[in-house]
Deep mutational scan, measured.
Amino acid sequence: AQASVVANQLIPINTYLTLVMMRSEVVTPVGIPAEDIPRLVSMQVNRAVPLGTTLMPDMVKGYA
Rank of each mutant, 00 (worst) to 15 (best):
A1M: 11
A1H: 06
A1S: 10
Q2Y: 13
Q2D: 12
A3E: 15
A3V: 06
A3I: 13
S4M: 02
S4Y: 05
S4H: 01
S4R: 02
V5I: 12
V5N: 01
V6L: 12
V6D: 01
V6N: 02
V6W: 02
V6T: 11
V6C: 03
V6P: 01
A7G: 05
A7D: 01
A7I: 07
A7F: 01
A7Q: 01
A7K: 00
A7H: 01
A7L: 03
N8C: 03
N8H: 11
N8V: 11
N8M: 12
N8I: 05
N8Q: 08
Q9T: 15
Q9E: 12
Q9H: 08
Q9L: 10
Q9G: 06
Q9Y: 14
L10G: 13
L10I: 14
L10K: 09
L10E: 15
L10H: 14
L10W: 12
L10S: 09
L10M: 13
L10Q: 15
L10T: 10
L10V: 11
I11R: 00
I11M: 08
I11F: 02
I11Y: 01
I11D: 00
P12E: 14
P12Y: 05
P12R: 07
P12H: 08
P12S: 07
P12A: 13
I13G: 11
I13Y: 12
I13P: 14
N14I: 02
N14K: 07
N14M: 13
N14W: 09
N14V: 02
N14L: 15
T15F: 07
T15D: 08
T15W: 09
T15A: 13
T15H: 06
Y16N: 06
Y16M: 15
L17T: 00
L17Q: 00
L17N: 00
T18C: 04
T18A: 11
T18P: 00
L19W: 14
L19E: 06
L19Q: 08
L19G: 06
V20W: 08
V20R: 08
V20C: 10
V20I: 11
V20H: 15
V20Q: 12
M21A: 05
M21S: 06
M21Y: 14
M21P: 00
M22R: 00
M22N: 00
M22L: 07
M22A: 00
M22V: 08
R23T: 05
R23K: 07
R23A: 05
R23N: 04
R23M: 05
R23G: 08
R23C: 03
R23Y: 15
S24V: 09
S24A: 12
S24C: 03
S24G: 13
S24H: 09
S24L: 05
S24W: 11
S24E: 07
E25Q: 10
E25A: 09
E25M: 07
E25F: 04
V26R: 03
V26P: 07
V26E: 15
V26K: 03
V26H: 07
V27C: 03
V27G: 03
V27R: 07
V27K: 06
T28R: 03
T28M: 09
T28Y: 07
T28K: 03
P29T: 12
P29D: 07
P29C: 14
P29S: 06
P29M: 08
P29I: 12
V30C: 04
V30E: 15
V30G: 10
V30H: 09
G31S: 03
G31I: 02
I32D: 00
I32Q: 00
P33R: 14
P33Y: 06
P33M: 09
A34H: 11
A34E: 12
A34T: 06
A34C: 04
A34N: 06
A34D: 14
A34W: 12
A34G: 12
E35D: 11
E35C: 03
D36C: 06
D36S: 12
D36I: 08
D36W: 12
I37V: 10
I37M: 15
I37F: 04
I37T: 07
I37P: 01
I37H: 03
I37R: 08
P38N: 15
P38L: 06
P38T: 09
R39C: 10
R39H: 08
R39F: 14
R39S: 07
R39Y: 15
L40D: 00
L40F: 02
L40W: 01
L40R: 00
L40G: 01
V41R: 06
S42K: 12
S42Q: 13
S42E: 06
M43D: 04
M43C: 03
M43F: 13
M43I: 04
M43S: 05
Q44L: 11
Q44H: 05
Q44T: 07
Q44F: 07
Q44M: 14
V45S: 13
V45Q: 00
V45Y: 01
V45L: 08
N46I: 14
N46D: 11
N46M: 15
N46Q: 15
N46E: 12
R47Q: 08
R47A: 09
R47Y: 15
R47C: 04
R47V: 06
R47D: 11
R47M: 14
R47T: 13
A48P: 06
A48Q: 14
A48E: 15
A48D: 13
A48G: 08
A48K: 11
V49K: 00
V49M: 04
V49A: 11
V49Q: 02
V49I: 15
V49T: 06
P50K: 11
P50H: 14
P50Y: 11
P50S: 13
L51W: 14
L51M: 13
L51G: 11
G52V: 02
G52Q: 09
G52N: 12
G52Y: 12
G52S: 11
T53Y: 15
T53D: 11
T53V: 14
T54M: 08
T54L: 05
T54K: 04
L55F: 13
L55M: 10
L55A: 00
L55P: 00
L55K: 00
L55N: 00
L55S: 00
M56I: 10
M56L: 06
M56F: 11
M56V: 13
M56Q: 07
P57C: 06
P57L: 05
D58K: 05
D58T: 14
D58E: 12
D58N: 13
M59P: 01
M59Y: 13
M59V: 11
M59W: 13
V60N: 01
V60Q: 00
V60W: 02
V60M: 06
V60A: 02
V60D: 00
K61L: 10
K61P: 14
K61S: 15
K61F: 09
K61G: 08
K61A: 15
G62H: 11
G62C: 05
G62M: 12
G62W: 09
G62S: 10
G62R: 05
G62Q: 15
G62N: 10
G62P: 06
Y63G: 04
Y63I: 03
Y63K: 03
A64M: 10
A64R: 09
A64T: 10
A64W: 03
A64D: 13
A64L: 13
A64G: 13
